[in-house]
Design a protein around this nucleic acid. Structure first.
Lengths: 350, 350
DNA sequence: TAGCGTTTTGCAATCGTTTCCAGTCTATTG
DNA sequence: CAATAGACTGGAAACGATTGCAAAACGCTA
């Protein structure tokens, strides 16, 4: 089929081992033969077979990235960054999508292990802790965005408590008192942490927590629409909604559009995690940016670090946080007390 | 390290070859030993090593997907579909992003070949035809979305001439005569074909082609903003714009927002290729849907077909087209002749 | 029970590398 | 000039599977 090391060795009239050493670098061959073999290899168009090499060395030059989907904007960014960084180092990315489903995650982890990936970045569901722990004995693993509580793995997280805090505080500073929160499930790191940030900001401002204003649900647009409807149907609806569940954003947006609510005049809207089109939307949507790009970069850094360290014992397992930033655009504005319909109508007539 | 076939064989007190045959299925071992070995393998937690297998068989159970990026919504869908379909068949997807750059594409193709992928789906830049042709001798390749004119590969394309045609005709039927077109570069299949569909619709309607209304450019938001500005600055600006360059959509949207144009009242806007948020945007954006999901599915079908056929000679290389559909939402409306500013002002005063 | 055909099994080669272990060659030193 | 260290090189054994070939075991029939 293709040119093998043997062909190169024969062409150069040396043994296979010499050829291997010359091309493998490391100065294990004399300068002269090395140059000669590199030349011959190039002439012949030799390309080492990573499978054969992998069999011998146990390395595949493959790195797994296991995420939930590619719909979530943060995951897109993460996938792009990871693949770009790895390619530069001559690794290939094995992208796996397991849709936040423990069973799929389990299977995928097995497959990844089978393929002898040299490293793994995973957004864990949190239900396969034991498997992850076992896997971590064999290869470097970095958890991203979510922590798996059953494991003790290096983890890169967004600073969700802080992000939700600064977002909520921003709304409070604008004068909002009744702030609706649409957030992720309580059994996820981000769900819990964002809720905690919201609660803390409220508490610090001396605003009592109103349970009816908080909706936690699945990471789906439907969550957003359902929650948004319930919030707006409240006897005393919120003047601002903080959609801290990224996937729910579309749903929330749909409902406000359906009801003809003008944002930010009738309702202030603050979302979490940027999407490219948020900036072009009318009004441009203000967000708490979780720093997906930096998260991915840091995860890659940590992974490479571990891969280089190459199993140097039970080294310090750390947790990293990437801070969130508030990006003010046009979807939030200072609170104005609502004018009652009757008054409003007469005012308009005046 | 892990459990190998040898371990299983020893535990079962048979030779390695027997173990291999028993586990490999195909009835090459007696029913009894087969059952026994399957049981023992399971008990031991044996998982075959795909690398070793790959070395012998030349198969990797890896399939490459080479696309430009993950920002483009169609590519997201394609990546999700391909990975889901492949996983179900126990293949892994090697996702590569080459950003429409011939050099990166070239390198990536090499790497993919090195890793002995069993098949490849590629959105070609069109500049590495020779390499693709050479590669096609060794493994099944399906081109997607773009054709590489220098090759003769199985290709799955969107029906862009038709898509652009129905889109343009829709606008014409709404009464628009001056229709701006923002389209992709002329050296891409989609760029040329969408332009041709636009031209045909115009011709059939007896509307002369006005070159100043057509802008072809790179697949970037900037193209959209620059082109949109030029169109709107025309002495006689278009009453509708057809953004047939997906990436340019955001740019066009930004400009219309900047200028405070109300869509569809001041301008009808029709875009190409759906994005999830188009439906939630205000107004919801009408589009020509290129059928990304079906494109991906068909590409996978064709690839699997070729992989099964396993080099059955120079079998019929076909080109497939997936038809486009018009999805009417709220961003286009019937043409009304513009009221001159002076008249408008006096009319308002009246 | 011998002879024959059919399963079923084991041996060993192979895939393309890497790497250990000796062996060869050169150069240096006493 | 002989001895010896050091640098290079070649042979061969891995890595973990698959697979052609031949031997063994089996079931039949005569």
């Amino acid at each position: 089929m293709s040119v093998t090391l043997k062909d190169v060795a024969e062409a150069a009239r040396v043994s296979i081992s010499t050829a291997s050493r010359a091309l493998g670098g490391g100065g294990l061959a004399s300068e002269r033969t090395q140059q000669r073999l590199i030349r011959i290899a190039r002439e012949l168009g030799y390309r080492p077979n990573p499978i054969a090499r992998g069999l011998k060395t146990g390395q595949s030059r493959l790195v797994g990235l296991l995420i939930h989907n590619l719909t979530n904007a943060s995951f897109q960014v993460i996938a792009e960054v990871v693949q770009a960084r790895l390619k530069a180092l001559n690794y290939q990315m094995l992208l796996c999508l397991a849709g936040d489903d423990p069973q799929q995650e389990h299977d995928t982890l097995n497959t990844l292990a089978d393929h002898r990936v040299d490293g793994l970045i995973v957004v864990p569901t949190g239900r396969n802790g034991a498997q992850l722990t076992a896997l971590a004995d064999k290869l470097p693993i970095v958890c991203l965005v979510r922590r798996d509580n059953d494991t003790d793995l290096e983890t890169v997280l967004a600073d969700d408590p802080q992000g939700a805090y600064i977002g909520t505080r921003y709304l409070i500073e604008l004068g909002h008192q009744r702030i609706g929160l649409i957030v992720g499930r309580g059994d996820t790191t981000s769900g819990r942490e964002r809720l905690s940030g919201y609660v803390r900001a409220l508490r610090e401002a001396g605003i009592p927590l109103d349970e009816t204003l908080v909706h936690a649900g699945h990471f789906e647009p439907e969550t957003g629409s359902a929650s948004c409807r319930k919030l707006l149907d409240l006897a005393e609806p919120p003047s601002a909604i903080f959609v801290a569940n990224h996937e729910a954003t579309l749903g929330a947006l749909r409902v406000t559009a359906e009801r003809g609510l003008s944002i930010p005049d009738n309702l202030s809207l603050l979302c979490y995690e940027d999407m490219p089109w948020f900036a072009w939307h009318r009004p441009a949507i203000s967000i708490v940016d979780n720093g997906a790009r930096d998260l991915a970069n840091l995860a890659v850094d940590r992974l490479l670090n571990r891969m280089d360290a190459k199993g140097q014992g039970a080294d310090g397992v750390r947790e990293y946080r990437v801070g969130a930033r508030l990006i003010k655009r046009g979807s939030c504005k200072p609170y104005v007390s609502p004018i009652r319909p009757s008054i409003s109508r007469s005012a308009a007539k005046a």
